[in-house]
Structures are given as C-alpha cells and as structure tokens.
Design a protein around this nucleic acid. Structure first.
Lengths: 237, 237
DNA sequence: TCACATTTGTCCGTATGTATC
DNA sequence: AGATACATACGGACAAATGTG
C-alpha cells in the first residue's frame, strides 16, 4: 500500500518560491533552458509569474545553491543557467564533514575502497586524452616542486583526473566530494609538506605507469599503499 | 604559489545573506546551536544582526536547503536546528541524475562496486542490533508480500540498513544518494513488480545469511548477482 | 575617464496565511 | 472560537555593482 501514497497530492501546499523554483527547474530538465541561457531579470520574472519580487529572489536562491544557475549583478547581468551541480554537492559533503557527521577515519577508509574500484575502471577505460592529462598533471607537479613549492593542487587534481578516466560520472561525483574535504584540509595546513608532496607525486607517477601497463595488481598495490600513507599524514595533523 | 592564495581574503565581498548564513552555520559547527534548538524569529534575527528581514529570509533559505534547519509556521514556530544533511545531499544527487549528468548505466555499475565494499565492511562490523534490523526488514517485506503488495520500500530500506551496518558514514551517505534515485524510479513505475519484489526479498535473505555466517565469498557472489539483476530490471523500463 | 542605464542587493511598511493555545 | 505569534508574500524605495558609450 505504501507505494500507492505517491499517487496523492502533497498534503502541504508548496510555498510560492518553491513552485517557481520547481517550474524553472522543470524547464532546465526538459532542455528548454540550457547552460549559457540568460533568464529574464527578477522584475520581469515576477511579472511573468504574477508574484512579488521577493518570491522570485528566494526561488533563485534555491536554484543558485542547487547548482543550476549563477547570478551576476549590474547591467547585462541577471540569472544565467550554469551547471555547477557537482561543485555544490561537494560543498554539502564538506558541510557534513564539518558538522561531524563524517569522521576522517570513515572518509579515508571509504576512499580507499572506492578509489580502488575507480582505478580498475580507469585501467579499463582510459583513452589517449586521459593519459595525456595525467602525464601533464605529473609534469606540472614536478615543475612546481622544482620551484620549491608543494604541489598540493596538482596532487589533488590527479585523483580528479583518475576519476574522469573511469568514464563513470558517479565515481567522478563521489571523488569530487571527497576532494572537497581534502582541499579544505590542505588549504589550512599549508606550511611544511614539500617533502610529502614530492613523495605523493612519485606515487602518482607509479600509478600512472600501472595504468599505462594495464597492470591491475601493481596499480591496486601502489594505490592502497599511497592512500594509507595519505591517511596517516592527515590523521597526524 | 597557488596554495598561498588561500591566505588572502575572498575577492568578492559576500552578500549580506551569505554572511548571516555563514555566521549561523558557524554556531552550529561549533556546537553552540544543536539539533532541536529554536532560533529567534526572523524579526528578532533581523534586529540582532542589524539587517533587513529579507536578508534574514534568504539566509534561512540557504540553511534550510543545506539541511541545517527546518522552518515551521504559526505560533511557537520559527527556525529550528535540525539535521537533514544526508537527505538534502540525496536530493541534489537526484537532481544531477534528472539533469542527465548521471546515466542509469553509470549509477548501477558504480553501485555494484561500492556496495561490494559496503558488504565486506558490514560482515566485519555488523553488531547484534544491525542483524536484528535486517531480519526485521525481511520479515516485514515478506508480510507485505503475503498481503499481495510489492515491498518496494522494505526492499530499498534493506540496502540502507546494510550501509548502516558497515559503520561507515561515507558509505551510508553514498548509499542514501543512490537510493534517492532508485526511490524516485520505483515511485513512478509502481504497477507490476510483485514477482520481482518477491525475488529481491529472497536475495536479501541470502545476503543476510552470508553476513551472519561471515561468508565473504558467498555474500559477494549473491550481491553481485542481485545487483546485476536489479540493473537489468531498471534498464528494461 | 566619466556619466548613464540596467540589474541585483537591501530595507521598510503592510497585509495575509497558518498553526498553537 | 478567538487571540496570538510566527512565516509568507506584496509593493515601493533606494543603494551598490557593473557593463556601455
């Protein structure tokens, strides 16, 4: 019987701004509005929906935070359809972490398991372009290191590229969320770490070689060792 | 050099409602405000922050959508700190799916890999209470089936309980997101499916037995078979 | 460089809906 | 049933930002 409940109308009537938000979202889902498209100004939207400007603004807030559009101020500004969904999900994930809903222990453990799967998919599906991106990443990291700076951004980006190589958007999304937390970490503890960044980069290089050689065993071994090392570093701080 | 950028102030001055939102969020992170606590009314908040009510309202919109509080209307109503983070992340994940950012193919493939890890952790960490919940779930599903109804809700809930048994909140969160999509699916195609729900319930029973016996091989085998079956069913529709 | 137009950002006053006592 | 306290919503006004000529 429970599943039949879905047939009835929602008991609690939606608020005005929620209806406006849903309506605009529907247009985006249906492809009527596409990334890059500019929406009418708040005043015009209010006229079109026959509501006050406040309701329109609150609807836009929801869509903005959900990752469907950006809002620019000034002339030629206004709401623009823009896809930042993965980014926003990463933000919420980071919130959950800060809210103590997720421990560093849980994060790193789950990461090891998930990233092993990602690696296997990457070995299977990475194309020439992916390999080039990964190689470029390592080259840039080494260049940064030679200048005497830790290559934190490049190190994090390596895992993003790895997820992209898996050709699976769920993996990419989960990885994006995990990296949002790690970025937050490294952005705060940014002294010391040159040596560690160097070690990390070397590990990444080994992983890349395993992908090129399609060596699952070696790849998994190095990755697991690498992530356990990262885990130890993080827990120390 | 890139990492040093984080030291500077944000270039773009935050908007008023964003600052208010951050401030309240900070109080929640720091534990000053806890779930169940009631915040002052909009009017009072506006007075306290020395801003207009509209700014407060938009700040509350952000916090509401982010899963930090609920807002109740009427006397004795107002903003109440309430943790619905996982729920909201699931919603955004569902959005990403509807927005065609994620294919059913990607979802089911990733799910198989992730849930295999979840199962191994569950076998390791499930306590007596978890086993009881899982058993109850299957009993309830069977009861529903005997009444001639498909046990969709119970079937989905089984996987939630499985993730809970893993004792890892990241797994739980990822599972919650995946199930949000599946719930949306089954809520729309709710005719036919009694036989399938019966098969699914039997599979769940086998998985539970494998957990009780701590049999990793058998558990992984049944789970993989089960999820592949689910995948076939979903892709058919 | 400067003035102008457009659009978001913000505040205020007021009215209505809604839930609790 | 009526009073109360709150969110919800409308309209008008001005400030701030920003692209354009």
């Amino acid at each position: 019987m429970a599943h039949a409940l879905q047939l009835f109308k929602p008991i609690r009537g939606k608020r005005t701004f929620e209806e406006i938000s849903s309506e605009i979202k529907r247009l985006i889902f249906d492809g009527v509005l596409k990334p890059g498209d500019k929406l009418p100004s708040e005043i015009e939207l209010a006229r079109m929906f026959a509501v006050g400007r406040q309701s329109v603004r609150e609807a836009l807030r929801l869509l903005e935070l959900s990752g469907f559009l950006n809002i620019r101020r000034g002339v030629k500004g206004g709401p623009v359809v823009e896809d930042t969904l993965f980014n926003k999900i990463g933000n919420l994930f980071l919130n959950a972490f800060k809210f103590k809903k997720i421990s560093l222990e849980d994060l790193t453990k789950a990461r090891i398991e998930i990233e092993k799967s990602v690696l296997l998919y990457a070995i299977e599906n990475a194309d020439a372009e992916d390999l080039k991106s990964l190689k470029d990443n390592i080259r840039k990291a080494k260049s940064t290191l030679r200048k005497g700076n830790p290559a934190f951004e490049e190190n994090i980006d390596f895992h993003r590229l790895l997820a992209r190589s898996s050709k699976n958007h769920v993996f990419l999304l989960v990885m994006e969320s995990i990296l949002a937390v790690l970025s937050d970490f490294t952005s705060r503890v940014n002294d010391v770490g040159l040596d560690r960044s160097r070690e990390v980069t070397l590990c990444h290089e080994k992983i890349l070689r395993a992908i090129q050689a399609k060596d699952r065993e070696e790849g998994t071994r190095v990755l697991e060792e690498h992530l356990n090392e990262v885990r130890r570093i993080l827990v120390e701080d």
